[in-house]
Structure formats: C-alpha cells, structure tokens
C-alpha cells in the first residue's frame, strides 16, 4: 500500500507540473494576450509596458523557467487581472470551491446511492419516476440547471440568489449555510443522477447473482438481502468513479460558479482564461490538477478498501 501511495503521489506531482506548465505555455501562444484587457485601441506604449511587466517580452522558455523557479518557492507570479499575487487568490478560491464541492458530494452521495438502491431493487411508478428524473438531470447542462434553480430562488425567495455571504451578516456560519443550497443543488444534481444510475445498475446485477439467490433461499428478508448482501458488493461501481467525481467537483465548475456568483476556482479560472491572465491561469490549473489528482487517489484508495482483489494496490 505504501509503495502504491508513493507511486500515485509521484504521478500526481508530475501531473500538476505538466498541466500547469502546459497551461502557461498554451496561454502564451494562444491568440491575444493579457494586454487585450486594455481594449482594442490601447496605445503601443501601454501595451509594451504591460507586456514587460508580465515578462511577455521575453522568450517563452525564459518566461517558463523564471515562473517555474518562483513556483518552487510557492511564488506563482502576479495576476494581471487583480494586480495581486496569484497564490492567495487561488488558494482562497479553492477553499470556497472546496466548501461547495464537499457539500455537493455529500448530497450527491446520499441522494444518488439511496435512490439507486430504490431503483435497483424495485419496480413500479416511483423507481420509474426517479429513473426519468435522473436521466433528465444527467442530460441538462449545469449552466441550465443553475439558471433554473436561480429562477426558482428569485421567484420564491426560498434562498439567496447568489454569492457566498451577505453584507453585515450577524453569524458567518449560518449566513454561509443559507447561501449553500443553490450552488450545491446545481452541482450535486447531475452527480447524484450519475451515482443513482450506476448504483441502480450495479445493484440490479448483484441481486441476480447466485450468492444472493442462495441467501434468499435460506429465508433472508428482502431488505437484508439488498442492504447487507447485494449493496456492499455493488458499491464498487460508485467507488470506481467517486474519485473522479470528487476531483472534478473540487476543481470547480465555472458554469455554476458564474451563474450563482460563487467566488470559487471555476469562476477564477474562467476569468483568468478570458483575460489571458497567464500566471493566474497556470495557478488555477495547478490547483485544479492537484485536487483532481487527490480525488483520483482517494477513489483508488476507496476502491482498494472496498475490494481487496484490486491488484494495483498490493
């Protein structure tokens, strides 16, 4: 297990360095640069000053080398968009996204697995309805889901229509909790639906396995058959994708974060890309890749714990 973890951690580090470097280089070679924010008709003097400030007047290899050297000391450069160091910006946004992602993951896990057990073990109108709802939730783009939820919030006033906090809130934590339902639901719905479909299919398959039939023949109750015999085996289907889902949630969803004005990593990455903010793009991608890798690692560990036959871990 230790060798497995060490190997995966090394892989994660390589992934982070490669993706962040690629992001930096691709942003540099893509059409346009951060001087675009000066407008189409900025003077040559303004453009030259801005390019010099962000090392765009130096060869690409030199720029990458200087950035990589600084990044080793946790100095990720300055954001052209916000005019502040990239590090604190990215870490604050990642923390905001983490709150959202963890909440969404909890909701998706409880709802997705629970409903998957119902649909995988029953027939009738309710499971049919759940299945339809799941397919709908998977099919809807998150931008649309967010807008629909925002519309509901705006029409009903049931929860705040955006942001992470209110001005002059008396209690930070209750205020934060009040702002969570909208983005969490928008993020959790498609993930919960995916979990439900996976859980349902896996459970239905296990319920037809000989060991379940044998238990049924021994007179084990139906509830016990599902929850104690078939479900623990079927949960492997979820754990296989759990890390990926966790990683992608933690690396931020720009659609949900933009619509709900959540100051997270997805929105920051989008803003950085749009403004060609080269060091901020690299910083966001580095953190995104790190959490994605961590999520995948978590998924592998969960898979190993749920199924000791997984050979890679030994």
């Amino acid at each position: 297990m230790v060798r497995f973890l060490a190997r995966r951690l090394f892989f994660c580090a390589v992934l982070v360095v490669m993706t962040a470097s690629s992001a930096l280089l691709l942003t540099r070679v893509a059409p346009g640069d951060l001087t675009l924010s000066l407008g189409p008709f900025a003077t040559a003097r303004e453009i030259a000053a801005e390019r010099s400030r962000f090392a765009l007047d130096r060869p690409i290899a030199v720029q990458w080398g200087e950035w990589a050297g600084s990044a080793m000391r946790f100095d990720f450069g300055e954001s052209s968009l916000y005019r502040v160091p990239v590090g604190p910006l990215v870490f604050q946004a990642a923390a905001h996204t983490a709150v959202l992602a963890i909440g969404a993951l909890l909701v998706a896990t409880v709802a997705g697995v629970g409903l998957g057990i119902v649909t995988g073990s029953q027939r009738g109108a309710l499971p049919g309805l759940i299945r339809m709802a799941s397919i709908g939730a998977i099919s809807l783009p998150s931008l649309l889901t967010s807008l629909v939820l925002l519309f509901i919030a705006a029409r009903t006033g049931w929860f705040p229509t955006g942001g992470i906090s209110s001005v002059d809130a008396s209690n930070h934590w209750t205020d934060l909790a009040g702002h969570l339902p909208l983005p969490i639901l928008a993020l959790a719905l498609p993930v919960a639906a995916t979990f439900e479909r996976l859980q349902s299919a896996a459970l239905a398959e296990q319920l037809h396995q000989p060991f379940v039939m044998a238990a049924a023949a021994r007179g084990v109750s139906k509830r016990r058959l599902v929850l104690r015999h078939a479900w623990p085996v079927s949960v492997k289907a979820i754990t296989a994708v759990y890390g990926l889902a966790a990683g992608s949630l933690l690396s931020g969803s720009f659609a949900v974060e933009i619509v709900t004005a959540w100051p997270g990593l997805g929105r920051l990455t989008y803003d950085a890309l749009y403004a060609r903010d080269i060091y901020l793009v690299a910083g966001c991608v580095a953190v995104g890749a790190a959490v994605l890798s961590a999520g995948m690692l978590l998924g592998d560990v969960l898979l190993a714990l749920s199924d000791p036959r997984v050979p890679d871990v030994r």
Binding site: L147, L150, F151, A153, A154, R155, G157, P160, T161, G162, G163, V167, I258, V259, T260, A261, P263, R267, D271
Partner: peptide, 22 residues
C-alpha cells in the same frame, strides 16, 4: 448610508437578481 457593488459576472443571473429584489 451604504452602497454595495455586488459582483455578478453573468448578465442573465444579474437580471434574475434584479427582478427578485436582490
């Protein structure tokens, strides 16, 4: 007494928040 400039990056979301009184 106080003027708050809320950062709302998406214009459709901004319109919904305007209509809701937010």
């Amino acid at each position: 007494d106080q003027l708050i400039l809320e950062i709302v990056p998406e214009q459709t979301a901004g319109m919904l928040r305007l209509e809701s009184g937010n």
